[in-house]
């Protein structure tokens, strides 16, 4: 599969199980690996300060399912969520694989990184003598990684973990590493965005990124642009209550300034998305989520400012409608 074809699939394959993204990608990945004599993508996955929703989202990948992602695409070398090893056995594996795969592994970080008090608000593991903070682990593994992928909005930009008043001084991964971080934002991420990004890394290397470091394949257009209810917006036909079928703009919809392909990608085997459920998009892929989206049910112009005075509130990287 050529890169252009891959990109086309990512952009165009939309709803419905038979056209699902990863079903189309995985056979190609397998073929590509066989013909280029490549191994699977070695991945070290660190869970930091988050709700754990992104690993659950990853488990929801469909066609093929998680088991085939494990067998054909990724070698998940360290993962607090999935690995069979535990305790110091798990920690030894982390030390060993970060050495063996130096310069070759992809570091996936799930969660924000607390910086206050030397990062003591998130300890990924302890030994008898010391604590390994998320700050230390991400800083140490970020250098030797071939790629760093921040999964979810907390890891990307701080997200709900860094929402005001941000007692823990949490930031996105990009703010603790002096290197490029690929942000696959969302609260949680749509599994297609994540699996598709890893597939791209495996076969073609770094995907094209928007100014927020996100693959343009998935984040390049606003929700508003592709929304099924766009004609209602254009006709100024607005819903007044949740549950109505018109445009959700007056109920706080963030679609006009949110880069994501939810309207046609949809969620969980591509069956629905928030606007289809008669509720507004709350802009969960945005740099200033959730503060820049709240109050969630208040029209955009009347929302409060995002983090740090909303410096990025009108500059979300997504193409404007």
């Amino acid at each position: 599969m050529q890169k252009e074809e891959f990109s086309k699939i990512c952009r165009e394959l939309s709803s419905g199980g038979s056209h699902a993204l990863s079903r189309a990608i995985l056979p190609a990945v397998k073929e590509h690996l066989a013909s280029h004599n490549k191994k699977k993508l070695p991945v070290i996955w660190l869970e930091t300060n988050d709700s754990g929703d992104n690993n659950i989202a990853f488990m929801n990948t469909a066609y093929p399912y998680l088991d085939r992602v494990f067998t054909e695409m990724l070698d998940l070398l360290y993962s607090n969520t999935f690995m069979a090893a535990q305790g110091r056995d798990a920690l030894s594996i982390l030390e060993q694989v970060s050495e063996t795969y130096k310069g070759k592994f992809t570091l996936v970080v799930e969660g924000a990184i607390p910086k206050k008090d030397n990062g003591r608000y998130n300890i990924i593991a302890r030994t008898e003598t010391r604590c390994i903070t998320a700050l230390e682990a991400v800083t140490r593994l970020g250098g030797p990684a071939e790629y760093v992928v921040a999964i979810g909005t907390c890891a990307g930009f701080g997200g709900p973990t860094a929402a005001r008043p941000n007692l823990t001084g949490s930031v996105g991964v990009r703010d603790v590493l002096d290197r490029e971080v690929i942000n696959v934002s969302g609260c949680p991420v749509n599994p297609d965005w994540f699996v598709g990004t890893l597939a791209h890394l495996l076969m073609y290397g770094r995907p094209d990124l928007d100014k927020l470091g996100r693959p343009t394949l998935f984040y390049g257009f606003t929700v508003h642009r592709h929304c099924q209810r766009r004609s209602y917006f254009d006709n100024k036909d607005f819903a007044k209550e949740l549950g109505e079928i018109e445009c959700m703009f007056l109920l706080g919809c963030m679609g006009p300034r949110t880069g994501a392909d939810c309207p046609y990608r949809q969620w969980i085997n591509h069956v629905s998305w928030p606007v289809k459920a008669n509720t507004p998009c709350i802009g969960c892929t945005n740099e200033d989520f959730p503060d820049g989206s709240s109050p969630f049910f208040t029209p955009m112009a009347e929302k409060s400012k995002g983090q740090e005075g909303g410096k990025n509130a009108s500059n979300q990287g997504g193409e404007q409608a």
Partner: peptide
């Protein structure tokens, strides 16, 4: 004294001393 950490296969981060 043995530090059981990380206790993997759960949601979040847990250490048991």
């Amino acid at each position: 004294r043995v530090m059981f950490s990380p206790v993997t296969r759960l949601s979040g981060l847990l250490s048991v001393d």
